[in-house]
Structures are given as structure tokens and as C-alpha cells.
């Protein structure tokens, strides 16, 4: 039997995740530069020269400007840490998940419906306990449904959309009424 082809080990940039040679076309080449100089000097010979010639400038620069502190690490410790921003594939920046509860009524079978509640876990509520409480309060089945990729949600049988707001705010005082939203005709409508 012929020999197995060994998988090629590709050097991926530690900053942007692209193969190192594509950093120059990546989302933020400037941020990758320090990493590249350390880990892949042979790919960008120009960088080394550049960094050597103005190494002194750079250090002082980094100390002064806060915009590149997250690259330099320790030197920026005095600056308040920025919220980690998640970059979407489109290059847009996605903020951290908003703390909100979303309630949606799904019609299952003409008169029968299911109310789904999403986002309770963002307020530090234990979903399994919450579902039990909901089931008890409305005397219906309530369960935690695990989406394969989405976050967990609570399904409650029956249409309880309007009573539920009061119940949530009463039971969990951390949840403000203004953070509760309904979904009506695919649009998000505040509950109050």
C-alpha cells in the first residue's frame, strides 16, 4: 500500500486566523504585524526592516496611543478594557448579546398554540427552574427546548403571551419590563 499523504501544516496567524501569508489582505494587517514579525519573519521581509528602523518610535507610540494597546498587551493594562467585539463575516462589528427576553407565540394547530420564551438565561435565570415555575403557574406543560445551535428556550403550551410579562417581572426582579419583547408578524414589539 502506498504511503499516506501527510496533512500539510499551515501556519495560521494568531491574530486574524488567516494563513499567515494572507494577513496582508486580512481585515487588519496592522494588528497582525507584531505577531508576524515574531512567528513568520520569512514571509514579510519588508516588515522586519521597517520594524527595526523605527522600533524606538513604535514603542513610544504604543505607550501613548490607546488605539493599539490591545495588540501590545501589558503596556495597555492601565487603559480600561474594551468590550470584546465579535466580527461578523461581513466586516461589521456585532455587539455583545443584548439582555432581553423575547416572547413568541407559535400556532400549532388552529386554536392551539405554544409560547416560546428566549433569552431568560441572559438574566441569570436557571431555565429548568423557570420552566417548572411557568408550568405550575399556568397549569400547562412547559419545557426547556435545546436548539442544536441556537440557545435554549422555554416552550410553554397554550397562549399565555399577555400574562407572562407580569409573571416574569414578578418572579425575577432582575428582569426589567422594558427588556421584554414580543414578536408579532415577524416584528419585535416592546411589551410595555
Amino acid at each position: 500500500m502506498a504511503e499516506k499523504p501527510q496533512p500539510v501544516r499551515v501556519l495560521y496567524c494568531g491574530v486574524c486566523g488567516l494563513p499567515a501569508e494572507y494577513c496582508e489582505f486580512g481585515p487588519d494587517f496592522e494588528k497582525c504585524k507584531p505577531w508576524l514579525i515574531q512567528n513568520a519573519p520569512q514571509l514579510y521581509p519588508d516588515l522586519i526592516q521597517e520594524s527595526n528602523s523605527n522600533a524606538a518610535d513604535r514603542v513610544s507610540d504604543q505607550l501613548q496611543s490607546s488605539s493599539i494597546t490591545d495588540v501590545t498587551g501589558p503596556s495597555g493594562s492601565s487603559v480600561p478594557k474594551q468590550e470584546p467585539v465579535k466580527r461578523l463575516p461581513g466586516g461589521k462589528i456585532k455587539k455583545k448579546d443584548k439582555q432581553e427576553v423575547i416572547i413568541e407565540k407559535v400556532t400549532r394547530n388552529k386554536r392551539k398554540s405554544i409560547t416560546t420564551i428566549k433569552g431568560l438565561e441572559l438574566f441569570g435565570v436557571k431555565l429548568s427552574e423557570a420552566s417548572k415555575k411557568l408550568g405550575k403557574k399556568f397549569a400547562t406543560g412547559a419545557s426547556v427546548v435545546k436548539g442544536p445551535t441556537e440557545k435554549d428556550q422555554i416552550d410553554v403550551q397554550g397562549d399565555i403571551a399577555y400574562d407572562i410579562v407580569e409573571f416574569i417581572t414578578d418572579t425575577w426582579h432582575d428582569v426589567p419590563e422594558s427588556a421584554i419583547y414580543f414578536i408579532e408578524d415577524g416584528k419585535k414589539v416592546p411589551a410595555v
Partner: peptide, 13 residues
């Protein structure tokens, strides 16, 4: 095609 692909687009596995 995958420009805006996230795990939310997985409808079922």
C-alpha cells in the same frame, strides 16, 4: 455564499 454564514443558519443537524 458563506459571506454571512453563522451557526444560526443551521436549521437542523
Amino acid at each position: 455564499m458563506f459571506k454571512k454564514f453563522t451557526s444560526e443558519e443551521v436549521s437542523g443537524q
